[in-house]
Simulated scan of single mutants.
Amino acid sequence: MSHFKRLIIRAPKYIWYLFCLVIFYPIGRIAKVLFPKYRDVWIVSERGSDARDNGYHFFKYIRENHPEIKAYYIIEKNSADYHKVAKLGNIVKYKSLKHHFLFAVSEYKISSHIFGYSPDVLSYNRFQKLGLIRGKLVFLQHGIIVNDIEWMFYPKTKLDLFVCGARPEYEAVIKRYGYPSGVVKYLGLCRYDALNKPCVLKNRILLMPTWRIDVCAVGNRDKFTQSEYYRKLQSFINNQNLIDYLDKNDLELVFYPHFEIQRFLKDFHSVSPRVIIASFNDYDVQELLMNSKMLITDFSSVFFDFAYMGKPIVYYQFDDIHYAHGYFDYGGDGFGPVLKTEDEVINYLAEKVNDGFLVDDMYKARAETFFEIRDDNNCERNFNAILSL
């Protein structure tokens, strides 16, 4: 689809959201003069659909430690996480009129995804390029960046605070992304505070690959199930050697497809009850990361969380996917071996079971060097950095 055709299709949305900005900005100015409760408002979100990432952990920190801050969390009413975050108070329905109003009056706009706090990412990103967005824009990050993401380069994306979760990532973003001095800061990811808390491990292996843009772009199930991506993962979760090994060692394998792949969840199936195909609504990613003994992934940045906790990782890179070159090399910098076949992965799993899921010294040393900051003050550092904007 051409760029011009996409603009035509989205034109009604652009017009509606622009209308909301035009209406609510002057209303907001008047409201802030007349009503103190609308001054210095913070809005926090992730994608508008969830509350289990850095946005949620930051909002929870504010509500529990700084109730004087007028912070509101933006989320869909039908989200699986709605009631969890509603317990903290100050919750606002995504895309509601109140959301539009608070977007207009807020001094701080904070999310784990670029423009995740807005009523529509594409529209408001365009409005920003036209100079129509007011307030301080804070990017808490969804995960540590591995490869260059060119649409995040300045000035394609403009931010007042760009949070990094590790020293090498921070140095790469400073060097390559072009932001003005002081915007990019190494503060640590907010959700890492929870990773330091004690957790009971289950006899569980987590399989969590990332998505593929070309696979998701197909749009229909028939084409998806014909893709190499689907066939490789479907084959792995039905590998008889794997299933036999799970049975023998009383292990379960939780296969948690990426958020963008969840719409194809029903196309995955396994002959073994020990293989659990996990849905977004029923499983919390961070809980899975915390209570699993080992991670199998391909390129998903969740492996950084696992390495931070000091647990074994294996990269099952079964296809030749090409990302824009970044600072991180899986072979030279990774926290586990890079393997290409099912048998290699299963053999490595057996090795880790036999040694009690110990992390090899080389990978342990890499993780210790990568994460210069290891404490439970990440939310506090993020909070203080925002106050200083």
Score class of each variant (00 low, 15 high):
369 T>W: 00
359 V>T: 10
18 L>T: 14
139 F>I: 03
111 S>E: 12
357 F>N: 09
365 A>G: 04
182 G>R: 04
139 F>S: 08
159 L>Q: 04
344 E>C: 10
154 Y>W: 06
265 L>H: 03
287 E>L: 09
3 H>M: 06
31 A>H: 02
341 T>F: 04
157 T>F: 00
105 V>D: 03
140 L>D: 09
19 F>G: 14
310 G>A: 11
184 V>A: 02
53 D>H: 07
152 M>Y: 12
287 E>Y: 05
234 Q>N: 15
44 V>F: 02
113 H>G: 05
284 D>F: 02
220 N>C: 11
23 I>L: 15
240 Q>W: 08
279 S>I: 03
65 N>Q: 13
130 L>V: 13
237 I>V: 15
338 V>F: 03
92 V>M: 11
125 N>E: 15
346 I>A: 03
86 A>S: 12
136 K>V: 09
252 E>V: 15
233 L>T: 08
296 I>P: 08
150 E>L: 06
343 D>S: 15
258 H>T: 11
308 Y>D: 04
136 K>M: 04
185 K>G: 04
138 V>T: 02
385 A>L: 06
335 F>T: 13
149 I>H: 00
77 K>C: 01
205 I>K: 04
278 A>I: 07
168 P>S: 05
21 L>P: 06
386 I>Q: 05
213 I>V: 13
241 N>Y: 04
34 L>S: 00
292 S>Q: 06
376 D>A: 15
361 D>I: 14
55 G>Y: 06
218 V>E: 11
299 F>L: 11
109 K>S: 12
342 E>H: 14
3 H>C: 00
196 N>G: 15
341 T>E: 05
292 S>F: 02
183 V>L: 01
246 L>E: 03
173 V>Y: 02
263 R>W: 02
133 I>P: 07
119 P>F: 13
199 C>L: 05
92 V>C: 07
311 K>V: 12
301 S>L: 11
365 A>R: 09
322 H>W: 01
63 R>F: 00
14 Y>N: 10
118 S>F: 03
77 K>E: 14
298 D>E: 13
205 I>P: 06
184 V>F: 01
10 R>I: 10
51 A>C: 11
73 Y>M: 08
150 E>Q: 06
191 R>M: 12
329 D>E: 12
127 F>K: 10
342 E>G: 05
388 S>T: 11
279 S>L: 04
154 Y>H: 15
295 L>F: 03
149 I>C: 02
151 W>E: 14
378 N>K: 12
256 Y>I: 04
310 G>M: 06
308 Y>K: 11
